[in-house]
Every structure is written in structure tokens, then in C-alpha cells.
Design a protein around this nucleic acid. Structure first.
Lengths: 115, 115
DNA sequence: CCGCCACATATCGTCTGACGACATATGGCG
DNA sequence: CGCCATATGTCGTCAGACGATATGTGGCGG
């Protein structure tokens, strides 16, 4: 259904930052790895296109929430590893709170929990 | 924090349809009433501006998910009451499922529950 | 050794929808 | 009579997802 596809697109809006921040919280990761992790951990439930992923990484770095570092290794194309900054940690915590209260509010209005 | 404000804006994307469909599921409601219900039931956690609400109502009606009817009453400005259509009921059910699995996936990737 | 695929990063143009600002109209209250 | 709550409506701006497209590398099969 087209409706569902459109909705899924909208859901990604805003969630991208949370996903990226949460994934680089564990350890430094590069873009491609992040994309794959989102795909695998969500069981394909959330797919995040590279055309959106890289620009989002740059925005997060510009805002000082993550910090990138080029890593050159023999046998592997150069990768840019991003790690969470101190400020990023604060924002991640705040975003988790925002999402959680949003879920709760959405449940109160539209009764979403327990399908 | 500007970040939070931006995030909140993005969260509304896509959720608007679910909220409206869920509210007119109970009984026919008019736009202004819907806006107030979203505000009150979410305890102000979700605010939905009229500039977005009315266009969304028109989109939903165009797609045949809700059906509007003008109601004139003495002592009250004319109101347009929207009720859920059969097709709207199907879409609402589907959207609840999409949201629920999105929540679950987001939790698996970014551990959002229990802030 | 060459083509193809997975890996890895990058950019452009299009489209959608939220929102601030503004507009219009009516009933009630002081 | 002015102001506020009610109620519907529109315009211009802005952000961000995504399809398409591009570049470059390492490994593997034929």
C-alpha cells in the first residue's frame, strides 16, 4: 500500500539522529557499518538510505554531536569512523526522553501499544 | 534546546494521520475539536498547528479515509464533521501496526524504552 | 587478467509536509 | 463596541528522505 510506504518514509524523519547517536554510543563506527546495523538490528523494519545517511552524519558532526576520523588500513578502503562527543551524549539522552514521552503521548491519543 | 524543537517537529511528520484517524474513529469530529483533543490527551506533549491540521484533513478526505459533512447549528459557526470511512478503518489498523513495529525496531536499535 | 560484486563515501534534484503568519467569520461577555 | 474563543482556510519557507548517479577499492570466479 502506497500509504504505508509514505508513512514509513515519514517515520524515518527525526529518528535518524537517534539511531546514529545510539549506535556510535557503543563504539566508533563508520557510515556503512551504521547503515548495516540499522538494517540488521531492526530486522529490516527500518531502512536508511545512504543518500540520507551521509548528509545526516555531516550535520551531526557540524553540530558537534559526533566526531569523525579517517582510518586507513591495508586491504580496506579508507573509512571515516565517528564517535560520540560529550555534547552528543547529552543530546542522545535528551532525544531518548523526547521519543519516550512522544510514544506515551501517542499511545494516550491513538492507542498504539499492543497491536 | 533547538535540537529538541526540531526533533519534535519531525516526530509530527507521519503521526498526524494516525492521530486524526484514531480520533475520528470514536465518533465524527470537526477540525478544531481534533486539535484540542490532540493537545489535551497528549498533555501538551503533541501540539498540532492548524496550518498543518486542515491540509491534512483535506488529504485524508481526498484519499477517502475520512468523510466530511458541514453541520450548521444556531449559535455556533458552521463546522465540518469528519467520520472514518471503511477504507479509513483499514488504513488506521495498518498504521497502528506500522507504528508499533517501528517502536519495537527503534527500541532494538537505540534502546529507547525506560529512559 | 578482466568483469562483477560488496564495500565505502559522496552529491544532486525532487517531493512532501510542518509551521509561522496571516485572513475571515461568528457568538458571548464585559 | 472591543476582545476573546471558536472555527476554517491559505501562502511561503524550510528541512530532510530518497532515487539516481558517481567514484574508487578489494576479492573472487571464470
Amino acid at each position: 500500500m502506497a500509504t504505508t510506504k509514505l508513512l514509513e518514509r515519514e517515520l524515518k524523519r527525526g529518528s535518524a539522529e537517534l539511531l546514529i547517536l545510539a549506535l556510535v554510543e557503543e563504539r566508533a563506527r563508520h557510515g556503512y557499518e551504521i547503515a548495516q546495523l540499522i538494517d540488521s538490528r531492526s530486522d529490516g523494519g527500518i531502512r536508511y538510505h545512504v543518500a540520507s545517511l551521509y548528509p545526516t552524519l555531516y550535520r551531526l558532526e557540524d553540530r558537534g554531536l559526533i566526531e569523525g576520523r579517517w582510518v586507513e588500513q591495508a586491504g580496506v578502503r579508507r573509512r571515516r569512523y565517528y564517535k560520540l562527543t560529550k555534547e552528543g551524549r547529552k543530546v542522545l539522552k535528551s532525544q531518548r526522553n523526547v521519543w519516550e514521552s512522544f510514544f506515551a503521548a501517542l499511545d494516550r491519543v491513538a492507542r498504539v501499544r499492543h497491536a
